[in-house]
Nucleic acid binder design. Structure first.
Length: 805
RNA sequence: GCGGGUGUGGCGAAAUGGUAGACGCAGCAGACUCAAAAUCUGCCGACCAUAAAUCAUAUGGGUUCGAGUCCCAUCACCCGCACCA
């Protein structure tokens, strides 16, 4: 038999598709298993070997589950709204719809050629109206429940892409799409109240099986902190300046206050501020800095003392100066802080630079040198003096503040509400209408989908306006409430909208009456295993958990969390060890590999190249090694001539069944393949194997290399009707009695160093083993003339003689 | 600065506290061949002519009969967050 992958692979891909064996069956009585991979953004560049690796883990698991008798849902679709398609459309003057559908066709072809066992009958794309109708529907539900709001605040804005970005989309001060510096602009935009779900997003992590690194990243992104809000009186006014602090017990050490440059109190008391020129100049200076400069580069404290405006320390009654400084951010807490220079390094640096008093209130450090942030006894703190426990002193102060009516306990999150709109064309139109009489009104459900109108020009408009704003027939409409003339919202949803619920649509992808049938959702959800990239942990994963939790709250879905288990894959680096990128020219195209070595080789290699979660460079030579392995597998057909079972081969085969079964469950695909390679080396050494040995072996290999194993299966006469596939055959189980060794082989140590190896039957007594160890020539030479202090025998593991001179 | 992770041959990597380097790549030698490729067989951490011994899992300590694995410290690299009050 020959390894004729060019004919074999298309042949079986067609046979499986014709037999519809990968189509999931709703309400089937077999146990369900829902495996999910992050559906791709269909870029013009086509698929990447990284996609192959990302999808192969759940692919292998899905194929194994089918063989284990599960009703498997392993779907695929396309996350097809987004900026790259739109930018390409602008460049080539082609409608993004045309480009997107072309790219989808290309991606589908690549995925099929790689032999993925997706259920194509459930395929959809987020940019098609029958899908985004329901994205809009969910948005309207969020709107109805008050989770959508509009606010004019400082937002992240990418000057390159000309869009407002969410916090998640501008991590590190860089635009997620084009990586240029993001600037802060005051803009009137739509937000989703994801912070209402902050605690739920945290608590939900206790009930799901995610890697710790994933959980930790979500926890730190949400950034929950507990503390207190305290009001400081603005001297000579009835106004209060509210601050947030996690250490209200250090209030006696507060010697000044700082507000963010954008803080509204400044404008309010403009008339009172005698150095307004300086204040304004500083504000302008800050506004020019990018978020990156403001947070990362400048560590020297800058600021301006506000002359003519002071505050009162509520606990000491003392008048304290007020500053503006850009080390205080408007976006966290209240945009104003109480400064405790003795115990906060930033406040300390600022106090030193501006000559403000530093009062020690916690003993233990040397405040002439630096701020002391450790624990210690409270001093100079009135009723708190003598407290040594942080918890107690905070609680006591809180009690006092509440009594005085000037403070209360509070919680803050680093996570911000989700800026939910883009001033671009290629996205879901936001289904809202602005009526001069009724305010903002949702588009009636019966009018969904609110379809994206055809336009000639996709260029983002002036002053950050969406191209939709130019289309009068779209903009002008009637208010659904009062029937008067009204205008449509012209912004579109961000790229993460469609992917925030797509796993639900797969449960019932062709439903025109609902986003998915409830009974089907109940049957399929939650997703049993979801694999994807680490880069989505604080974006898509968080957003989709939020939407799902919301849908759970309004009774639309039956599980509180969407994904029972989440895993991630490591990157495939270029052959040079660098991250693959077009500009470096080190990108490997999966179709080239399919052409040169076949899909089975590609699939086997991406799973064999290293630990699944770590980044591994691509190696064309090592890929050839996997092809060699598959050729040797084909060669087994010629030696499957034995008529009687060989005990040693049976032992090795059953050990391999156990190892491969367990390794797949533990995502240790590399060692699973290594074990199969080792096994066929043993097969060849044995000279011949039975047909049954070969059948079991190809079943184990089938999830990795489904085509060639299917061909061998047929060659062996197991598929007489063309529909009895290896792919759907029963997963092998191992026989416990067959994995017992007839002989044990262990190392013999003298003082912990291996000096010999002995072999004996498993029922040998300790005495017999020790005698055997002593009899070993080499061991004996190390024992000679020494005093034997101790004999340690760990059955089946090791024998160690401890000797003294 | 905070959080998480990694460090093992020429390379990708394996090793429930128990024979370090499975498996693969590259390399070397041999077989087949007129020859080459492919294939097959053998070797393949360092030191060494060879064997033995010795050394060897980033570095330095420790626990243990025994440490790549556990503990402490240090260094290097990677990822995430970051003037978060």
């Amino acid at each position: 038999m020959k390894f004729d992958y060019k004919n074999i692979e298309p042949k079986w891909q067609k046979a499986w598709a014709d037999a519809k064996i990968f189509e999931a069956v709703d309400f089937d009585s077999r146990p369900k298993w829902y495996g999910l991979v992050e559906f791709p953004y269909p870029s013009g560049a086509g698929m990447h070997v990284g996609h192959i690796k990302a999808y192969s883990s759940v692919e292998v698991l899905s194929r194994k589950r089918r063989m284990q008798g599960y009703n498997v849902l392993f779907p695929i679709g396309f996350d097809s709204f987004g900026l790259p398609a739109e930018n390409y459309a602008i460049k080539t003057n082609t409608h993004p719809h045309i480009i997107t559908e072309k790219n989808i066709a290309h991606f589908s072809d690549q995925l099929k050629q790689a032999g993925f066992s997706f259920d194509w009958s459930r395929e959809f794309a987020t940019s098609r109206a029958d899908y985004y109708k329901w994205t809009q529907w969910i948005f309207l539900k969020l709107f109805e429940k008050g989770l959508v709001f509009r606010s004019k605040t400082l937002v992240n804005y990418c000057p390159q892409c000309k869009v407002v970005l969410s916090n998640e989309d501008s991590q590190g001060g860089k635009c997620d799409v084009c990586h240029s510096d993001v600037v802060q602009l005051s803009k009137d935009v739509w937000f989703l109240r994801i912070t209402d779900y902050a605690d739920r997003l945290l608590d939900g992590l206790n009930d799901v099986d995610y890697p710790d690194s994933v959980k930790q990243q979500e926890v730190s992104w949400i950034g929950r902190s507990t503390g207190a809000f305290v009001n400081f009186k603005v001297a000579g006014t009835d106004d209060n300046l509210e601050i947030y602090t996690t250490r209200c017990d250090t209030l006696y050490g507060v010697t000044f206050m700082v507000v963010a440059p954008e803080h509204p109190i400044l404008d309010k008391y403009k008339a009172q501020i005698s150095n307004w020129d300086k204040v304004e100049a500083y504000r302008e200076e800050c506004a020019k800095k990018s978020e990156f400069e403001r947070t990362q580069l400048v560590k020297d404290k800058t600021g301006v003392k506000i002359d003519g405006l002071t505050a009162i320390n509520p606990i000491t009654g003392k008048e304290i100066p007020l500053f503006i400084a850009d080390y205080v951010m408007m976006g966290y807490g209240t945009g104003a802080i109480m400064a405790v220079p003795a115990h906060d390094q930033r406040d300390y640096d600022f106090a030193k630079a501006f000559g403000v008093d530093i009062i020690e209130v916690i003993k233990g450090g040397d405040i002439t040198k630096e701020a002391y942030t450790g624990d210690g006894e409270m001093i100079n703190s009135g009723f708190l003096d003598g407290f040594t426990n942080k918890k107690d002193s905070i609680a006591k102060m809180l009690e006092k503040l509440e009594e005085m009516g000037i403070g209360h306990k509070g919680v803050q999150y680093k996570m911000k509400d989700w800026a939910f709109n883009r001033q671009r064309y290629w996205g879901e139109p936001i289904p809202l209408i602005h009526c001069p009489e009724c305010g903002t009104v949702g588009v009636p459900e019966s009018e969904l989908p609110l379809t994206l109108p055809d336009v000639e020009n996709f260029e983002p408009g002036q002053e950050g306006k969406s191209p939709l704003a130019e289309i009068e027939s779209f903009v002008n409409c009637k208010c659904p409430k009062c029937g008067g003339a009204a205008k449509r919202e012209t912004d579109t949803m961000p790229q993460w909208a469609g992917s925030s619920w797509y796993f639900l649509r797969f449960c019932d992808a062709n439903n025109a009456e609902a986003f998915a049938d409830k009974k089907k959702l109940e049957y399929w959800m939650p997703v049993d295993h979801y694999n994807g990239g680490m880069e989505h942990v604080t974006r898509h994963l968080l957003y989709s958990r939020f939407w799902h939790q919301f849908l759970y709250d309004i009774g639309e879905v039956n599980t509180p969390e969407p994904y029972a288990k989440r895993t991630y894959q490591g990157l495939i680096l270029g052959p040079d060890g660098e991250k693959m990128s077009k500009s470096k020219g080190n990108v490997v195209d999966p179709l080239d590999i399919v052409e040169k070595y076949g899909a089975d080789t590609l699939r086997t290699y991406v799973m064999f190249m290293g630990d699944y979660t770590s980044a591994t460079p691509w190696s064309d030579e090592a890929t050839r090694g996997c092809k060699r392995f598959l050729e040797r597998v084909v060669g087994l057909v010629d030696i499957a001539t034995a008529t009687a079972e060989d005990a040693d081969i049976e032992n090795k085969l059953h050990k391999t069944i156990k190892k491969v079964s367990e390794d797949i469950e533990n995502m240790k695909f590399n060692t699973a393949i290594a074990a199969m390679m080792a096994l066929i080396n043993d097969f060849y050494k044995a000279g011949s194997i039975t047909k049954s040995d070969l059948e079991i072996f190809i079943k184990l290999l089938s999830p990795f290399a489904p085509h060639i194993t299917e061909e061998i299966w047929e060659t062996l006469g197991n598929n007489p009707d063309g529909k009895t596939f290896c792919t759907m055959s029963a997963w092998p189980t191992y026989d416990e009695s067959k994995i017992q060794d007839s002989k044990l082989k262990i190392g013999v140590q003298v003082n912990g160093k291996v000096r010999g190896v002995i072999e004996f039957s498993p029922d040998a007594s300790k005495e017999e083993v020790i005698a055997l160890g002593k009899a070993d020539e080499k061991v004996a030479s190390f024992l000679e003339g020494k005093e034997l202090v101790k004999e340690i025998y760990v059955p089946g593991k090791i024998l160690n003689f401890v000797v003294k001179n």
